[in-house]
Amino acid sequence: MKLTIDIGNTCIKLVAFDGDTPIESCHAEHDEPYKIVEFCSRHDFTKGIWSTVKKLSTDFTSVIENLPFPTMQLVSGKTPVPVSIGYEPPTSLGSDRLAAIVGAWTQQPFHDILVIDVGTCITFDMISSKGIYMGGNISPGPKMRFRALNTFTSALPMVERKGLSPRLGTTTETAIRSGVINGIRLEIEGYIKEFRSKYPHLLVYLTGGIHIDLHNSEKMCIFADEYLVPKGLNGILQYNEASFAK
């Protein structure tokens, strides 16, 4: 059994793997390191891997370092991975983005793949059929967009993401929600259309904590995978298996 820990901007995701198969997952807040201990008590883990996009508290780091099995941290540009990184400097690439790319590549090797992660930010990352990470783009996620409209104006209210989002809003609330949600959908569909014009056999992976409904015309060869980052972490752990034998 193997443990993956994905520490994101919003929350922490723990996943237990039996081989390549995720068998249980758990979410924790950044001030709940005890949940890692509770999760580990339910499984006979032999090794683990973790990554973070933010600085951890001393308590959190201590919990990970004192787990009763060996763990490794994914550090972009330093940890060996089964793909080539075309990003400068490699150490500046977010570990979550790298793990998502590896997760897609290990499932669909030798394909051109666009990975779209919709969360706190929206990231678009491309890996070629030769296994070369070509780079990517970062865009504000839904929460950032709603907050920006409220913060940087004097009259627009803070609107929740869930609710009616018609093609054209008929109230200030629906105008904001529709502008944000439909804007994100059109942004994603635009990326897919543009990349498919250059890579006709492009595969697309959608992941992240926020679901976006795409038009039917854009759904061909799109895979929704909530475990993409954990699968990538698990694949990187397997790729570095020899380091645990030393």
Rank of each mutant, 00 (worst) to 15 (best):
D125I: 01
E32C: 14
L202P: 00
V63A: 14
N9Y: 05
V37R: 12
I236Y: 00
Y199H: 12
T207D: 01
D112R: 01
E24D: 11
I236L: 08
E29S: 14
M144H: 05
Y239W: 09
S129M: 09
L56E: 05
N234E: 02
L67H: 10
T4I: 03
L214A: 01
L149S: 10
I184C: 00
N66W: 10
L233D: 01
P70V: 00
D31W: 12
S129G: 14
F152W: 12
Y87M: 00
K2P: 05
I210K: 10
I101V: 15
I23T: 11
D6K: 00
T52K: 11
P140C: 04
K47E: 13
H215G: 09
I184Q: 04
V102Q: 03
L164W: 07
W105Q: 07
H43Y: 10
D18V: 15
F152N: 09
R42L: 07
I132L: 07
W105N: 04
E38R: 08
T71I: 06
M158E: 12
Q238F: 13
H211S: 14
I210S: 12
N182Y: 10
V15G: 08
I64G: 12
N182H: 15
I212K: 06
R161C: 06
I210F: 10
G179D: 06
G183D: 03
P80T: 05
P33Q: 04
I132Y: 02
M126A: 02
S129H: 13
F195W: 10
L237M: 00
S178A: 06
V63R: 13
P33L: 02
L14A: 09
S84F: 08
T58N: 09
L237Q: 01
Y191M: 06
I222F: 13
L168W: 11
S243Q: 13
A148T: 08
L206T: 05
K231M: 07
I181V: 14
I222V: 15
P157Y: 09
F39K: 03
